[in-house]
Amino acid sequence: MTSVYESAGGREGMRRLAHAWHERVMADEVVAHAFHHGFHPQHTERLAAYWGEALGGPADYSRGLGDESRVLRMHSGEGVHEDMDRRAIACFDLALADVGLADAEPLRGVLHDYFAWVTTEWMTRYPHDADAVPTGLAVPRWSWDGRQQDQ
């Protein structure tokens, strides 16, 4: 069976989606606040590598950019921000349309579910203390059936 990553266009599809999402969040007055401190010049490429790995692609993020503990620490310690999370998900859904995946079922639904889960459940696990994130975590994997527990 083709992976979610492959169905979404592989490495180039992840880059297009990450770019479209980033453009959308930077235009959103609430979500853009998450980037008020700036961001890495290759933010969208790094994000694409992370999403690609999570969705069944190569482990480019883990091999060259860091582990899941690093990602969680970047997203932790800022408190609870439910409105921002909802808006980030809405931006993701619009980005899916921007890259031509809005009508590509079941792919669109799987990508939405992944992003909603990672945004509202996974990245919010340590809202008050980034130092509480355990070391050595692996990027969580997601497939057509949702989160893959045996990593």
Rank of each mutant, 00 (worst) to 15 (best):
H81A: 13
F115A: 09
D103F: 04
A34S: 15
L72I: 01
G136Y: 07
L94H: 12
M123N: 08
D93E: 15
E82G: 06
D60H: 12
A138I: 07
A34H: 13
S143T: 15
T2Y: 00
L137N: 04
Y50N: 00
L111E: 03
F92M: 15
G146M: 07
L47Q: 02
D83F: 04
M74Y: 05
E53K: 00
A97F: 00
P140H: 10
S62W: 01
R16I: 00
A32E: 07
L101H: 12
M1T: 09
G146H: 06
A49E: 15
V30G: 01
G146W: 00
H112V: 15
D83H: 10
R70W: 00
G79P: 03
F92T: 08
Q149A: 11
H33R: 14
Q148M: 07
V71P: 00
V31C: 01
W51L: 15
R141D: 03
F35R: 03
L72R: 13
Y61T: 06
M26W: 02
V4M: 06
L17R: 02
V110E: 10
Y114S: 02
R11S: 14
W142P: 01
R86I: 00
E29R: 14
Y126E: 08
P106W: 00
L17G: 04
D113W: 02
A48K: 09
G9F: 05
G77P: 06
P127I: 14
H40S: 12
V71L: 10
H33D: 11
R73V: 05
L65R: 13
L55P: 06
L101V: 06
P134I: 09
A102G: 10
G77V: 13
Q151C: 06
V31P: 01
P106M: 01
G64S: 11
T135M: 09
R87Y: 04
F92Y: 15
A132E: 14
F39W: 08
A8M: 13
D150S: 12
P140K: 08
R63W: 10
V30A: 10
A102D: 13
M14L: 06
R63G: 14
L65F: 11
G38P: 08
M1G: 14
A130V: 10
H37Q: 13
Y61S: 04
Y114K: 02
M14S: 02
E78P: 02
L101C: 01
W117S: 10
G38L: 08
Q151S: 12
S7I: 01
T120V: 09
M26S: 13
D98L: 08
G79A: 11
V99K: 05
R16E: 09
A20M: 01
P140C: 09
V4Q: 05
D28N: 13
V99Q: 01
D103T: 15
G146F: 06
